[in-house]
Design a protein around this nucleic acid. Sequence first.
DNA 1: CGCCGGACATGACAAATGTCAGTGCGGGAG
DNA 2: CTCCCGCACTGACATTTGTCATGTCCGGCG
Lengths: 204, 204
Amino acid sequence: MTETVRVLLADDEHLIRGALAALLSLEEDLVVVAEAATGPEALAMARAHAPDVAVLDLQMPGADGVKVATSLRTELPACRVLIVTSHGRPGHLKRALAAGVRGFVPKTTSAQRLAELIRTVHAGNRYVDPELAADAISAGDSPLTVREAEVLEHAADGAPVAEIAERAALAEGTVRNYLSSAASKLGADNRHAAVRLARERGWV
Amino acid sequence: MTETVRVLLADDEHLIRGALAALLSLEEDLVVVAEAATGPEALAMARAHAPDVAVLDLQMPGADGVKVATSLRTELPACRVLIVTSHGRPGHLKRALAAGVRGFVPKTTSAQRLAELIRTVHAGNRYVDPELAADAISAGDSPLTVREAEVLEHAADGAPVAEIAERAALAEGTVRNYLSSAASKLGADNRHAAVRLARERGWV
DNA sequence: CGCCGGACATGACAAATGTCAGTGCGGGAG
DNA sequence: CTCCCGCACTGACATTTGTCATGTCCGGCG
């Protein structure tokens, strides 16, 4: 006899959330007990309803899926987390797993398959999309040192070096140096291309 | 007596497409006759099934929603187009309307509302989300000249000036000049920040 | 201990970038 | 017609950025 699984659904796109709720409700053993459109809202809903499984979108206003998962890990250890994402960046998968997430799949998955996966993670098993996993493995760990990543983040919005130096409390020469070494590690021609690449791989 | 409306659904996210198809099918007068995951596929499906209304995602692999809409405009003038988008950039709305799109809404819209809108555009009326419209109006027209926009696009991936100059068949000095004037028009400190801003506003 | 490798940090120099002043062309106002 | 303004375009100059050589401070290892 399959017990019913209480599900929390969090996604900022109303269209998807509603549609998904409807489809999952067709499954006998799944019941959607709460919905949320933002990170903080998802957290509040989880506290209020203590779902068995939380299905979280990776990109939401307020706090992203991984942040929510981290909070849930300590507040509701019994709640399994399944993350769904539109454009999977390797680094995010790694961060997600570190946050105790049990499942990680792209939105190209069918609803049928998603229902199965909800049962899978509820049973205590893990599942990550094979393609995303392959990407993460081939992309590997970030080769950047802490400072390099930090400086690169400050450079993300196209700020001039002087401003970055001030924000990071470093000499301009030092900032240029980190930027340069980060760029060469990433195989980029300049810091801007480096920012783009690091973003793609989820390293910033 | 309401006639039935034949709908084409195009979105690269299987999860959403499937869920949406299911929800729209619940409506008596709507029938989803085809689904597609990429721009070219959407075009092929449209040719094959000649739907009354095409619901297109703005961002798809191959060709974006607006490009598909442009092609449909000439190939299937009877087919109304409704564009759905996750993160609405003002410029896209303008381009979409220029391409003869009848409706433009964010994915935060509910499925119920979407069904209504499909009927609305099928009836020959137009509808654009009020908030997106407000953004588009407040963002206004692109202040960039044709060449400025062109050069800015070539600069989008962080390429050095020399490369941009070659691709655009211009002198390096000229490229720097356009970049500089574009940046000052956008209120940016350098071309990279300018690229970011122009992207946000949908001007590139 | 003494040595090595790596992260952190800096300034000097060369290369890339942004700014400026200026030319030519075409279209609209006077 | 002439003047003026805006766009397209260019080279020269000043500033910013990227690269290099160098130095310090750890933590691990023979």
